[in-house]
Design a protein around this nucleic acid. Structure first.
Lengths: 315, 315
DNA sequence: CTGTTAGCGCGTTCAA
DNA sequence: TTGAACGCGCTAACAG
């Protein structure tokens, strides 16, 4: 806010040239220990930090990244962003936030805004409708979350593993009629993969499968859970905590108490409202950290594109 | 990502000087209509946009603001941020996100990071422990949300009005034993103001008051609601949706069905889980828009510091 | 009305 | 090992 010092001032104050200060600031070699210490002392004493805009103009990075969440109030994405932010701060990156509202068009607009600004990289929470060509120009500076795409880095959840853990646990608890409520297959990960895993487990345990795939919204869980409840049903597997929340409201209203809920999510809200639920933690927190780490390495050329899968854990 | 054009290129391409291009870009007067159109044509044709870092270095604004939320998963703050973001985008501001986790120390650290970066302004969601002197150097470029402070702009909720609306409604419904669950008075707005308003309403309607002030967390609502439930209690007023969620879990578990819940919040989660609740919308969405608008006007010197109060509405 | 000139704060030559 | 000079893309002051 006040008149900031410049590298020139620091040079004058420490009795050296501008370029020496620059070298010290950037940890470059070729500066004597004594000089380096002298300059560093002055820098610290004045709390000097070089102007980011000037650096950026010199072709350096702006140290700005963008995080595009689907919805600000997504329980799972919140958990990931929560660990992502500190990871970015620590490396000096400022994360700007954008909300896609599950609209590929909005993602497109946001990316276009970002291409004007000199962004270093983007973390994008994937969803149905995000296509490779929409992201084409960002190949090297984007990390996709919760989805993968050819030619892009991604951090994904272990959808199959999560469902398997849940089914295993339910089976061990003696459940033999386990229904499933999930998301349409147009959603590849949360939708198709989790449902397929459920079906595979049913086959493996020789159980009848019964499923409905209304969508991601809480109300959809509520509205459609009845379709998979038979008199024999003793357990209900939900593709997400959000669906489980919807389903459990229905169960409560109908005073159905002999159906064990299970879901992948392990969000704080779920843990509070329904601690009795069997839940798998897909590793949102770890995913956030990893996504940030991968993006930083990647934009600095220290890492290639990489697909990371976070292992699921029973909570 | 590719080799961006510069103002110089545009100048060459349109056969004018750099400064003329600059004048056109900044909508400055003193350019003939013909020249302006010619330049604009070239600019649009190439999708040119001036380098933000270069502008910033020339002392212009960086067009970056920061939003410091208390928690990423705050139901109320999410609603405000959701309207704030587009408002900022529209004016060309990039909002960087930070989470304070209700820690004044973290706010301090974040503000310090921001003072190094050349930030235009800050929207800060206030909470207990935020003091005027912590924010001292940001007087002119900060908008406080949900709190007010001397010498600062703020956007506040009408705590008294919200409680009054709720009490009025409950009274009209015939309730005469209305308990209150809220937040300690150390929290000035959500805590003291709402509780005081409750007490005042009780006096006005000649009702006995019965209240407990455990805190903001859902679990606190759950753990302490029993303390304000008597055999006569027919309604329970909650200072926030989050508390109401906690309380309602308790009521459900205890199969208590003759207590009408009321709360200030009107968040989507609440509306879904408990549509039967009497709820007041404190105007989170509007608050977000206003905060963004006020901050932008303010940092552009087009507005003075201002305290804005959002009126509450029955949902 | 318009073009030329001089920096903004920094990184990067290049000579010393 | 160091410093002086130059230029990044832009705006502002000045000259035409």
């Amino acid at each position: 806010m006040q008149n900031r010092l410049t590298i020139k001032d620091i040079a004058r104050l420490s009795g050296v040239g501008k370029s020496t200060v620059s070298r010290v600031l950037n940890n470059e070699s070729g500066v004597s220990q004594r000089t380096r210490e002298k300059v560093e002392a002055i820098v610290n004493q004045h709390g000097f930090s070089p102007s980011r805009s000037a650096r950026a103009m010199r072709g350096q990075s702006d140290k700005v990244v963008a995080i595009i969440v689907s919805r600000l109030d997504s329980l799972s994405e919140n958990l990931a962003v929560q660990t992502m932010l500190p990871a970015f701060y620590e490396q000096g990156y400022d994360p700007i936030m954008m909300e896609s509202q599950f609209s590929p068009e909005l993602v497109g607009e946001h990316l276009q805004m970002l291409s004007h600004r000199n962004i270093d990289g983007v973390v994008l929470f994937g969803f149905t409708g995000i296509t490779e060509d929409l992201l084409a120009s960002w190949q090297s500076s984007l990390v996709l979350l919760a989805r993968d795409a050819n030619g892009f880095s991604s951090v994904c959840y272990d959808d199959e593993g999560a469902i398997q853990l849940l089914m295993e646990k339910l089976y061990a608890q003696g459940h033999r009629h386990i229904s499933f409520i999930g998301v349409p297959h147009s959603d590849v990960t949360t939708g198709k993969r989790r449902h397929d895993a459920y079906l595979a487990c049913c086959q493996q345990y020789q159980l009848e499968s019964l499923s409905v795939l209304p969508g991601l919204a809480m109300t959809q869980g509520y509205d459609h859970v009845a379709e998979v409840l038979t008199p024999q049903t003793t357990a209900l597997l939900c593709a997400t905590d959000t669906l489980a929340l919807g389903a459990s409201k229905y169960l409560q209203q109908q005073r159905i108490e002999n159906v064990q809920l299970a879901s992948v999510g392990n969000t704080p809200l779920m843990k509070f409202l329904h601690p009795e639920i069997v839940t798998v933690d897909p590793g949102y927190a770890q995913a956030g950290r990893q996504a940030a780490a991968q993006l930083i390495e990647q934009v600095n050329g220290r890492a290639d594109l990489r697909k990371i899968v976070i292992p699921a854990k029973l909570a």
